[in-house]
Amino acid sequence: MKILLSKPGLDGHDVGVKVLAHALKDAGFEVVYTGLRKSPEEIIKMAIDNKVDVIGLSILSGTHAIITQRIKDVMIANKLHIPWVVGGNIPTQDVETLLKLGPNAVFPTGTKVDEVVSYFKNLSATNNKQ
């Protein structure tokens, strides 16, 4: 399974996303990391160009609701229908609100790396069955 990890918005905190990239690579996934400050349009284009199976977004500046909505709009506009997940500095109370906007999973503050890796492993297993 090929995973695109990205940092949308202007937030430059990339320690978490890079730790996750390392962990996913070690778990056998193919990881493409976009780097910082990507617009929703750039992220979706990279996802299409790289033919990834899933998108992971890391947001730490508090803009998660705004960005999640915009990513959803751009995915629809580009007819991209693949799983996508959102993580970062997200309060637990915002998880439900974000899920309603469309991502397949939301990983709030304090989520363990192993939990996210397991999620992708399950997703990969489900994909292979289909």
């Binding site: 918005g9 202007l10 400050r37 500046s61």
Partner: peptide, 22 residues
């Protein structure tokens, strides 16, 4: 805020949602 730190004006599309936030 991040737009100022990244050299973007408040009316720049990339500043949307970030004005005055941090």
């Amino acid at each position: 805020d991040l737009p100022t730190q990244c050299g973007l004006d408040s009316d720049d599309q990339r500043a949307f949602g970030e004005i005055g936030r941090v």
